[in-house]
Design a protein around this nucleic acid. Structure first.
Lengths: 345, 345
DNA sequence: CTGAAAGCGCTAACAA
DNA sequence: TTGTTAGCGCTTTCAG
């Protein structure tokens, strides 16, 4: 635990010189010889700047908070993983914060901000809980933040996936297989992400000249239980869908259970396609056809945008279009059992 | 962002008095009147101590690192969730660290320690990657750490679940159903956890007077792919097991896929029981019978033990026995198809 | 009973 | 080209 003083002493220079050298101050002009000596002493002593001292002095503590809910979801885990990677590369720590705590316990957020625990926050909304409360609370603290995984409007900073396109692809896949009665197991709530995914479903149907009747939409939420419930609604429809586009992976798993529970087969009776790829899709039964989106990249970009914001960049809303969404066909989708299922409406 | 000075000024006392008051210094003896005034000013100004300053001054930064791999596993997510909860209660930040980074990039760990990014570390070994390298690296840094989810020996600090008992319960469940050829899809590797789970399987068999032949054990690892591969080995056995005790949940999912792929049915041809309960078990197909263990509690206790260690407590190895492991019966286990499957060996 | 002052390790403004 | 110095906010002796 060498300090800058020790390095300076051993190298025969002043602490400030070491600081400037190590931080790549462009205005520093030392003899190459001196520079070399300082650098080698620093390496030899295994010098690493003390984060607390740096934070106290400067304007940055070197930590980013990421508000988590559903950490247990493999989808969020991928985003998180990308964020961790980007944070590490930029020499920031990634601090996990349970988002419910931010909503229910105002003091929780308060501990992070005036205490300067983190420099900024990655925020995900999921429309199910008190999202707006969280957003308000965070806004009130003036803590810089970036919205992850949802399109947002201009005063905000955000990184999103192309949910409309992904949902369109998922729906088009079913249409191409010959399905006509294609339902949407929606995320629900008021998040842009939820609306976008429904929009994509609708666009694909319109494009094929098909109606998108409201009874073909049920809320499936973001968990297996809610997906199960939503699927049950769809199954009770007078016209039973032969294909379902699930808004979230966990809801899709719930849907599979509901379909099975109703004594029906996937994909023979109903095809299911979901958003987001993961082991949970690959090892579902049957394996789920999915639209793969760059989740890790999403997490990475979000961290990068947040850091840019800390550096003073103006608000920006990024839509991740590369790598492109990719349809991964698996056993959960197939042509509808028979063409004569095309019912009169 | 009020500072201690401002509070002191407004309350008409010295900063040191505020500090002592707010930190509950027992030797402080102020007039009740003064104490009240200071406290109310602090509340009014919304004073929160600056973490960096405190860290710089004191010996603690108020952050714990948790080394993660397989964050994507719902099992680890539960542990993490418990840890976050305990850390928040104790006013510690929880910093996520990708454990592979600790292994492959010595500098990564180095950034955490001499920089005093965290006060301690929660470490999970999974026996699959360079665990020992990580452990050595961490030991070399002298950073206090606690091993999570594995029994360890005395100089170390650790919190573990009762893996032997859990595995015994899982195995006994199959035996009670009438199974005789019960295989173990082992975690593999040299972690105590892996050995304990195998031990539990063996104990249950012995207790029933049954052999535990080596060919009834295959390594299933901790991911669906590895579970799949391990299950394939078991299926190729001359005596095909009618029941399988999976060491991990994700391996169990892979096993389900392997069994399905071989044209066999669960539970008709083979019953599967796994460790750890989660939505992934509940919504597998068929839903997996599982032994539920207190994973969140494990994370919580690990954080608490780590904090105790920071406070100078001597090495301790805790075995979490409450709440007790609980067998959650689901559709993946049933009596063997027919008693005449009791083969001559 | 309370205050003054030093100093944790670092950086940035100012000197030399 | 390099060094000196002040100070970030806090805690903790040591004085009063």
């Amino acid at each position: 635990m060498a300090t800058i003083k020790e390095v300076a002493a051993r190298a025969g220079v002043a602490p400030s010189t070491v600081s400037r050298l190590l931080n790549g101050d462009p205005t520093v002009r030392v003899r190459p010889e001196t520079r070399l000596r300082v650098l080698s002493v620093a390496a030899e002593l295994n010098y690493t700047p003390n984060r607390a001292a740096r934070a106290l002095r400067g304007t940055r503590v070197g930590a980013l908070g990421v508000a988590l809910r559903h950490l247990t979801s493999p989808v969020y885990a991928q985003i998180f993983s990308g964020a961790e990677d980007a944070a590490r590369s930029a020499d920031f720590l990634l601090v996990a914060i349970e988002v419910d705590a931010l909503a229910t316990d105002p003091a929780a957020l308060h501990r992070f901000v005036p205490g300067r625990a983190v420099d900024g926050l990655l925020l995900q909304r999921d429309g199910l809980l008190a999202d707006d409360v969280v957003l308000e609370n965070v806004l009130a603290t003036k803590l810089p933040f970036v919205i992850v995984n949802e399109r947002v409007e201009d005063p905000l900073y955000g990184v999103a996936l192309d949910d409309v396109r992904a949902s369109r692809m998922a729906t088009a896949h079913l249409l191409a297989l010959g399905h006509v009665d294609v339902a949407h197991l929606a995320i629900g709530g008021t998040t842009r992400r939820a609306l976008d995914r429904q929009e994509g479903w609708q666009q694909a149907l319109s494009h094929a000249g098909l109606p998108a009747p409201p009874e073909m939409v049920a809320v499936g939420g973001g968990r297996p239980e809610t997906g199960y419930a939503g699927m049950m609604e769809l199954l009770a429809n007078p016209v039973r869908p032969t294909g379902v586009v699930a808004g979230t992976l966990l809801a899709a798993l719930g849907a599979l259970a509901a379909i099975r529970g109703a004594g029906l087969q996937v994909p023979d009776d109903i095809s299911v396609v979901t958003h987001h790829d993961s082991w949970a899709a690959e090892y579902a039964s049957p394996p789920l056809t999915a639209v793969r989106l760059p989740l890790e990249e999403l997490g990475r970009r979000a961290v990068q945008l947040l850091i840019e914001r800390l550096d003073g960049a103006p608000p920006r809303q990024e839509l991740l279009t590369t790598p492109e969404p990719q349809l991964i066909p698996r056993a959960s989708t197939a042509p509808p059992r028979s063409a004569d299922r095309r019912r009169p409406r």
